[in-house]
Write a protein that binds this DNA or RNA. Sequence first.
DNA 1: CCCGACACAAAGGC
DNA 2: AGCCTTTGTGTCGG
Length: 578
Amino acid sequence: MMEDLDHLNDENINIDENEFLETLDNADGDVIKTFRNADGSLSSHFDKRKVRIAPRSTLQFKIGPGFTPVVPNHKILNDFGQIQEIKLEPRIDRGFDFIDDDWIGYKRNYFTVVTSFDTPGTDHIEFMKQAYHLDNGVEIKYFATKLAAKCLEDDKLINLVQHTAKRDKGPQFAPPIHVIAPANLPKHQIIRDASNVRNESKMKKFDSYFFLHKEDVGTGCEVRSVLANYPSDPIKKVARYERIQFASSITLKKTSQQNRRFSLLVVLGCYVKGRHDGIQQSSPYHELDHYDEETDMTFVPILMEKTPPLIIRGRSPSNYCQQIKVMHTKKSDFDNGSPQENDLDVPADKKERKRRGRKSKQPDLKTTANVSHDSAGRIPTLLTNGLPSTFEISPTSGNMRIKNIQLHSSSTETSFPRGFQSESLSVAYFSNSATPIQDSIFKKRRLNISKPVVLESNLEEPLDDITENIFNTISFEERTPSKENKERLSSTSVFLLKHVTYDVSEPPAVAIPRAMLPNKMEISYCLNDYSSSFIEYPPPSTSHKRLPGSRRLLTASGNPSDLLNPADWSDGPSIFRH
DNA sequence: CCCGACACAAAGGC
DNA sequence: AGCCTTTGTGTCGG
């Protein structure tokens, strides 16, 4: 059984250690509580019964409840019989808000769980060069993770479903078992930034966070190294479960009053050869193992972590904001200092009518402040569409700094989709309202700029006026006016990193319209497999009516190869439990 | 009341 | 700058 809310202050969730930033008020009181995450990004928790935030607002990303370890199912040993420490690093990055001491999710909305695993005391690369077995002597072929959910009231597993970015127009499937190598978990902001990337140069930038290329492990590998057993190359380093929902069939209420509560489980296991016995019912790992017939291998759970109790709100209108207005949170609204009044434009004769058609709510309550991150001149807020790991704020001096924006060449960095023709470059800007982007200090001063490189543009990303600022490495420091100069910072500071691809080879003779290219979001992305992003997949119908059978649900009898390019499944079997 | 399906719309990606 | 995507959620109807 779950303990209760004690782990709310687990460091994983960053609430305790987080600096509380601010609360946005409206007539109803505190609506949005914003915390700064360890990486500088923000987690804004809000009650969807009270305020409606746009679907693509960055406020929909937030670190959810932390995970706590469950008693392990196995220990693992190396070839010398020594115990190898091993630890999951899971995190929820979308879908759960902390409201009135409860973690709240929505049945209709996506959530995101990411996890990697760490090998304390052993370098991740060194780890891959050795061989391991379970404490029962069985040889470990490779490691993998599984995502599961339980209802706490009856301790039964419940189904989860995953969509592609195409949602209804694409397939649904059970969250797969992801084969992964040990790695550090990328920061929350990285997961945000990587969540809907199609641009090749941007993907390349993220590649090293998410993939290990076998050739990068180098020499010194034992013949029996676990590396050699991994069934794919590149090997995932992070299991990303994005666009996950609880199965629509789950029952949310125990009684009319009492919510059922749920817990998400992240399991680290390994694949071993052959069929192995099931796990007894009394074990928390019962039914978390999985035998795969195709490969004649069994996924054996080693250890897992669980969330505190989660409450899932259903589709009832009572779980949604009764107001008509949407809070706009578009980033550009903040680029010029404090946001306008906002109060949404409800274009809405149409909408009002729709609303009233049902039952007249209280239509004219003026809601919505804006997300005035610092309109009152309090704490300056960083917004970024770049990578937070490239900037930092000194807690003592208040110095703001962007450092070591590394630009990797294809010879030294493993590619995202591995390509040898393109170079991935970054251009950084700094701005606050007193320093508009156009006058960015970056453009005024070129600091520590190493040798410029000259490359041709490709057709997808034409050269623009930024081109003159191409560098291999950029770094500079900017002193934040901390004391004397507070006014200047009483407005929003914005960091932007622009990622540009320059094609070294001859550009194609004819530009291919984007619509004609394979859609990288279709399948490969949902499988976190950027290395095979260019598979054939029929474009969704342009018709508004769904084609009969065009939406396929994978079930226990479903075969993934019906839907997916086999290359996407090359990293091991997955389970389909519906 | 539930759910599948379709629809709208706002912010992000390119 | 303007299109195309993605995703929260409004709505209908079985």
